[in-house]
């Protein structure tokens, strides 16, 4: 088997999709000053609800929608606890992650009598071929033929860049994450913008989760996110909370993941070491060895009005 071929590029793109959706989601939340380590849980909730709805309706699109809606709802819980009730954002995120280990398993046990997975879905999201591009040799193979969430993730990056730096919403969201007091003194509703950021993170991470169960796979499997929410968090930090840099980080980490799958048992480098790459890079960047990652100034601090 060849180590580097087109296959590894296409699987890089597939494997980085949930990372991109999750990390861009996290970007909204953290730019608004709310640390979101609940991404892992949001992925699982999204994946589970998408699989369940797709199974019962036979429609993967409804599954995708269900994943998005569930993501928003769970993110709302995170917002409620950490914004309205001023709870610690890390602990709240941890609580949601633990909840995400239980809810899917218990409910799939109750629905299907199989706690560790949901039944296979007959129809998953279709792959889309892009006209013209699909006919170009090589490039067509790399760029075309993915499911909708894959294209959506790249659209999300571009839209996010635009929204963040060119719209009122983006300006205010960033202001709220940097200095809520200053924003408040100019009449910006801090609490509302914090909620917007958190809910958007739920929306995107929920879609990312749905991709795992009804786009990439055909069912929900217990703990199928396998730490991708945390890798997305790492990518967000490594990308210094900037949409394009975050995208690049996600692609690097997605590539590491693809490589690791390819290398399984093939050559001397242990897969665990390749899996560690995202985490080691993130520590280096947080310490300041590779540039310096400085989070939004007010992130992690509960905002008490007045």
């Amino acid at each position: 088997m060849e180590l580097f071929d087109i296959g590894i590029l296409t699987s890089t793109i597939r494997l980085s999709t949930p990372l991109i959706l999750c990390a861009i989601g996290g970007l909204y939340s953290e730019r608004g000053g709310v640390v979101n380590i609940a991404l892992e849980g949001l992925l699982l909730f999204g994946a589970f609800s998408a699989a369940v709805v797709a199974y019962y309706t036979g429609n993967p699109w409804l599954g995708l929608l269900a994943g998005a809606v569930t993501g928003v709802f769970i993110a709302f819980l995170h917002g409620l606890v950490s914004i309205t009730f001023l709870g610690d954002q890390i602990v709240s995120g941890m609580g949601i992650n633990i909840l995400a280990l239980g809810v899917p398993a218990v409910f799939s046990g109750a629905f299907f009598n199989t706690p560790s997975s949901t039944p296979s879905i007959e129809k998953i999201l279709p792959s889309l071929n892009i006209p013209v591009i699909e006919d170009i040799p090589l490039l067509g193979e790399i760029l075309s033929g993915y499911t909708v969430p894959v294209y959506l993730s790249y659209a999300a990056v571009i839209i996010t860049y635009f929204v963040l730096f060119y719209t009122i919403f983006g300006l205010r969201l960033r202001a709220v994450g940097e200095n809520p007091k200053a924003a408040e003194s100019l009449g910006v509703n801090v609490i509302r913008y914090k909620y917007y950021g958190v809910l958007l993170s739920g929306l995107l991470a929920g879609i990312g989760g749905a991709f795992l169960s009804v786009g990439h796979g055909t069912q929900f499997i217990k703990n199928m996110s396998a730490g991708r929410g945390y890798i997305a968090l790492a990518a967000l930090i490594f990308g210094k909370w900037h949409p394009f840099k975050t995208l690049l980080a996600c692609l690097i980490f997605g590539f590491a993941d693809a490589l690791q799958m390819r290398l399984q048992g093939v050559i001397g480098i242990p897969v665990q070491f390749i899996q560690m790459i995202p985490y080691i890079l993130t520590i280096l960047v947080i310490v300041g060895f590779i540039g310096k990652a400085v989070p939004p100034a007010a992130s992690g601090v509960p905002y008490r009005k007045g």
Partner: peptide, 22 residues
Amino acid sequence: KISKDFVYIIQGILILFVVSGE
């Protein structure tokens, strides 16, 4: 009807309630 993973639900709920100080 209830699997052992229900434990995570109890733990998660408890954490979220305890941390909601306000």
